[in-house]
């Protein structure tokens, strides 16, 4: 074998397993979403033969615009709050003494590795009508006994921020750790105020970490399903809930796949924007878990 052919053979044998696997089990299923949206539903929960436009027309459901708007709105607010909290935290961790930094990172990582369902359930227990938070609020006369803390959009927002915060802190910390803090001192020596130095020097300095964190929070938020399902009510349904409802309750897979196509469209806009923003930087956004 010539060296060139040997190299090609080596590349193929190393690339083929993952490439073929992901083509079959990731790309093909993703493309199937579009095809199945054009198929008629089978009453027993399967997919019938033939083609139809019927399912796509069902997307004109008058409830959908509101649900899509709510999905985008809740995700955007979650991302904003999460980043607003995570940026000062990453700044603090990066400037800490090493022992304190290890402690704070350790305490941030634990919820990160803890079961997602358990963390959501813990909040359901806190917000429950017989739960502790309501007892305290009623005791302090901050809420009347018939206030409902659970099953409303604010509860969904709170729990989304709670579950997404570690995902924002870790990539931001990874960026802040590489930031040269003497630049802030230099800016202040040159007369910048503390806030000015923070916003004009630190924020641009961790820009790539900020983009990663934004992506890590926004995309899963848009696809949220468990949180609104467990702590939200009918008034806080998101696209993910409707997909699950069509799949498990109505057993109408074509309708579920039409909605999944809508979700893909909603999600792809920020995704392309972020990936283009990142291209100018060194490499793709690092998954936050890698930091661990």
């Amino acid at each position: 074998m010539t060296p060139k052919r040997r190299r090609l053979w080596g590349e193929c044998s190393l690339t083929a397993p993952s490439m073929l696997w992901l083509l079959v089990f990731f790309l093909l299923p993703t493309l199937i979403i579009l095809a199945i949206a054009l198929k008629p539903a089978d009453p027993s929960g399967g997919i019938a033969d033939g083609w139809t436009w019927h399912t796509l027309f069902s997307l004109r459901n008058p409830n959908y615009p509101e649900i899509i708007f709510r999905t985008v709105w809740l995700s955007a607010v979650t991302t904003t709050i999460t980043l607003a909290v995570a940026i000062p935290i990453s700044y603090y961790i990066a400037r800490c003494k090493p022992w304190k930094r290890d402690l704070v990172l350790f305490l941030t990582i634990i919820p990160f590795w803890t079961s997602f369902l358990i963390r959501i359930f813990a909040w359901k227990a806190v917000l429950h009508p017989d739960g502790i938070l309501k007892s305290i609020l009623v005791f302090c006369h901050l809420a009347s006994p018939d206030t409902l803390l659970l099953y409303r959009p604010e509860a969904v927002l709170l729990v989304m921020v709670y579950t997404e915060l570690p995902f924002a802190i870790l990539p931001l910390y990874a960026a802040a750790e590489k930031f040269d803090f003497s630049l802030i001192e230099a800016a202040m020596d040159l007369g910048a105020g503390r806030l000015r130095a923070f916003f004009s020097v630190f924020i641009p300095g961790v820009y790539n970490g900020l983009l990663s964190a934004c992506l890590m929070v926004l995309i899963p938020s848009i696809g949220s399903y468990v949180i609104p399902d467990v702590v939200g009510g009918i008034g806080s349904q998101m696209i993910g809930n409707v997909i699950a409802q069509r799949t498990f309750v109505d057993r109408n897979l074509p309708a579920a796949s039409a909605l999944a196509a809508v979700l893909t469209l909603v999600m792809i806009i920020p995704l392309i924007y972020f990936l283009r923003g990142k291209k100018t930087a060194d490499s793709g956004p690092t998954p936050a878990k890698e930091v661990v």
Partner: peptide, 24 residues
């Protein structure tokens, strides 16, 4: 692209697409 994209696709899309694939 194939290795990276599943990291940023929401779980619910991975779930529904694989369900449809298996059902199909």
């Amino acid at each position: 692209f194939l290795v990276y994209t599943p990291l940023v696709v929401p779980e619910i899309l991975l779930g529904i697409s694989m369900l449809l694939f298996f059902v199909a």
